[in-house]
Nucleic acid binder design. Structure first.
Lengths: 173, 173
DNA sequence: CCTAGTAATGTTATGCTGTAACGGTCAAGG
DNA sequence: CCTTGACCGTTACAGCATAACATTACTAGG
């Protein structure tokens, strides 16, 4: 099963083959549109960092982003450069922080609600983003029962993606 | 109190008043029992770290644990001392790591399944542990649909506990 | 044009989080 | 006695993150 084009639900990227060039271009275009719409500036640094994250559906540590940013520029930027850009992207729903990995991924569901949940493959490092509501429904119910008011939910599953399960069957059934 | 008859399901601590001295003593006794049962050694360092975590239902960073361990001993132990003890406790279900905070809490549900979910109060720092199944059910379903095999799920909600909502009503709904 | 204000970047320095590697101690067992 | 294995002690360093301040760039108003 190579390419899927059914659009009934958002097909989660990350574990499925797709035209990544188009995926990347679309995400960048979406980011520009969002920034125009909200009066934000997608500066060169921010766009470069987003593009770095968009190179794959894996999560990158801030220092890896920083290294690639340095490589792209030919200079050696300092950590705050990367962190500020990442903070901007996360604050505006263009990227997400993966707490489990202390790392960042580009948002794979442009324009969506942005309470995503994530599946992290330990084999290949790919991260799939799925809508958070379904995953967090039970959590909301528990919170209501406790009188707890949820401001943000972190939902991250770690395991093996289909391809990695197929490659090393001993890791799961 | 809502007490289940024979499942042993406890009401979630952390946000509720309780006899914490007893809670702490019970957890320590449980830890000793678990270690005897499994042939593990609850050494002085490990017991001290567990006791430090049991001082409250808040999450503590490894270096804070380290400081308190040093205070308790009168010496100044190095990071690996704390990390090794914390790793032992986490590996054996006696404590949990809170990814969102890069910090650790004592397990509040001794003997339970150990795929907990957590609610973290931003106001007072308290952490309540709830059974993970309910919270992660939607996640499991999504994973099945994707063919993803979950090895571990991180489910952490950040927000306001009942007491803190009451104290500062502007922060909640 | 000039200027003042704001937002973003550049830079320095530092602190928190986590681990690799090696050596010492102690207990169990040949 | 000597090995083995588990744990602890220590050094050193790697990776993650931010405070604080200087500089640049854009832009709004005179």
């Amino acid at each position: 099963m190579a390419k899927r084009s059914d659009t009934g639900e958002a097909p989660p990227l990350g574990f499925v083959e797709h035209d990544h060039g188009a995926c990347r271009a679309a995400a960048l275009a979406h980011a520009r549109a969002v920034c125009v719409e909200r009066g934000l500036k997608l500066t060169e640094t921010r766009a470069a960092v987003l593009d770095i994250l968009l190179e794959s559906h894996a999560a990158l540590g801030a220092y890896e982003v920083l290294r690639r940013l340095g490589a792209a520029r030919g200079s050696a930027p300092q950590p705050p450069i990367a962190y500020r850009a990442l903070d901007f992207l996360v604050a505006n729903g263009l990227a997400h922080r993966i707490e489990r990995l202390n790392a960042y991924v580009a948002c794979a569901r442009p324009g969506a609600d942005h309470a995503g949940a994530f599946m992290i493959c330990n084999g290949c490092g790919a991260v799939a983003e799925i809508p958070g509501e379904a995953a967090a429904k039970g959590l909301s119910r528990s919170a209501d029962a406790l009188g707890f008011d949820i401001a943000r939910a972190v939902v991250e599953a770690e395991g093996s993606c289909p391809a990695c399960r197929a490659a090393s069957p001993e890791s799961g059934s």
